[in-house]
């Protein structure tokens, strides 16, 4: 049906998007790759030259690198665990018939719309602060010593904040998937005497599998790049205790002025993200064929 004319027209219509994204993808990435093999420090701009794999070796042998890698994994893994398990539980709960469902839904999804710096500062100052925070008040009320979250458990504190932001996302997507589950199937299972647990394991969970995959993959993409939450709470500290890979690269680049080293770190981050992206693209791609 498509004539040569309409094909030409549709190419013209796609050109701006495709062209811009092509430049957007290639130019900065090529520059990062180029810098990663260069000696390039902004404090010493005269000394620029080919560095071979020095930057990668420098980044690799830096003890902060392995700690940040571990922190990145702990952050992503911890948040995923909380949001997926919590998301399933809350989605099942608000899928029941309850009074005021609309308001409950609105309250539960709200944290997702709070900008990261606000979320982090509210938790830091008003919830987790060791002397004025709500948790400290509660601890004192129970006769306990308040916890200094950002000094004692910095990474855990950040995991809690980020999980709070992403729990609504997981809940909302799982709830949407849950609501598309065939009610008659559920009823049939119930009439056959299937209890809550077996209905959940054999009916609900398989139905949610796809949504859970999507939640895990999309969140991973965003969680690998958690930045503002760390910046305004711990600034990566104490030491490197709450520095993830993204934050380490930022530190190397804009605080250490080491363009070469930061670029090598950037390439490592790209490789990590690509491993995740590979699986996400397969999951989304399947949907297109349907």
């Amino acid at each position: 049906m498509a004539t040569a004319q309409t094909r030409g027209l549709s190419r013209l219509m796609m050109a701006p998007s495709v062209g811009l994204l092509l430049i957007w993808m290639i130019v900065p990435l090529a520059m990062t790759l180029w810098f990663s093999f260069q000696n390039y420090n902004l404090l010493n701009p005269a000394n620029v030259g080919f560095a071979g794999l020095f930057n990668y070796r420098f980044f690799y042998t830096d003890p902060a690198f392995f700690q940040s890698l571990w922190n990145t994994l702990a952050l992503v893994g911890g948040v995923l665990l909380i949001t997926v398990l919590g998301g399933i539980a809350i989605a099942l709960l608000i899928d029941q018939e309850i009074f005021g469902q609309g308001i409950v839904r609105i309250m539960i999804i709200s944290p997702f719309f709070v900008m990261p710096p606000v979320a982090a500062l509210v938790w830091k100052n008003m919830i987790m602060h060791p002397s004025y925070g709500v948790l400290a008040d509660m601890a004192r009320g129970l006769g306990l010593q308040p916890v200094d979250w950002f000094a004692q458990y910095p990474l855990l504190a950040i995991i809690i904040i980020v999980a709070w932001q992403w729990l609504p996302f997981a809940t909302l997507i799982l709830l949407t998937a849950l609501q598309s589950l065939d009610g008659e199937q559920k009823e049939a299972a119930e009439m056959d005497g299937a209890g809550f647990v077996s209905r959940f394991v054999y009916l609900t969970l398989p139905h949610l599998a796809r949504a859970i995959t999507v939640v895990i993959l999309i969140q991973t993409i965003f969680l690998l790049g958690v930045y503002a939450e760390i910046l305004v709470t711990t600034n990566g500290g104490p030491g490197y205790a709450s520095t993830n890979l993204a934050f380490l690269i930022y530190r190397t680049a804009l605080l250490g002025y080491d363009v070469g080293g930061a670029s090598a770190g950037g390439i490592i981050a790209v490789i990590l993200a690509n491993i995740v992206a590979f699986f996400l693209m397969r999951a989304v791609g399947k949907n297109l064929d349907r």
Partner: peptide
């Protein structure tokens, strides 16, 4: 799919070139 893949690029990886 290719457009989607551009979204996968970690922002921090291109911080240096974009900044410069």
């Amino acid at each position: 799919m290719w457009m989607l893949s551009t979204k996968m690029m970690p922002a921090v990886a291109v911080l240096v070139p974009i900044y410069l």
